[in-house]
Amino acid sequence: MAKTIVQEFTKGLWEEIPPFRLVLGLCPTLAVTKTVENGIGMGLATTFVLVCSNVLVSLLRKVIPAKVRIACFIIIIATFVTVVELLMQAFTYPLFLKLGIFIPLIVVNCIVLGRSEAFAYKRGIIPSFADGLGIGIGFTLALAALGAVREAFGSGTLTIWEKPITLFGPSFEPFTFMVEAPGAFVCLGLMLCLMNLVGNK
């Protein structure tokens, strides 16, 4: 069953939303979602890489020999990741400091390689673009949601554009467990559970 372009785009937002449905790309998902801002920054960086690499892989799919396709994908992805890293250093340096090592690690993010291998290598440019954008925005939304929950309970604030907004009164005791790594797992599990509950109806 062939999907329309719109369907290719929207599937990334719900049906195949990466960290929840595909359960891929957990390393950045768990590590950087301490605040909403970090989650969004990481998501947008990944989206950029995803869209660019999908388009380029799809464009070159007739040229790339099947036996070395993974190597070619890695070169393409690594190039765009380095571009993102340089641009972030140049324009959003504080965010770059916070995300640190996780920016170069987008190279080994399974989502990006997975979309190149499973989708863009077999499809045309426009569906690949829609797929990359959909999955990327889905990933961004997921990271932002996870970051919002963790930040709200873990530190009682929501950070948007470097301005933390305090949510609760002064008597609020931060539930610091949520900003630690185990809190990320628990939170992710609960959100998966919630999504399945809603999705099964």
């Binding site: 070159l60 190597a71 070169i75 393409i76 690594a78 190039t79 571009v83 340089l86």
Partner: peptide, 18 residues
Amino acid sequence: VVLTVLSSFSGGLLAAIR
């Protein structure tokens, strides 16, 4: 050939952006 060309393009692009 494909790998070499791809790598050199990537190198050139990164050098320009850097």
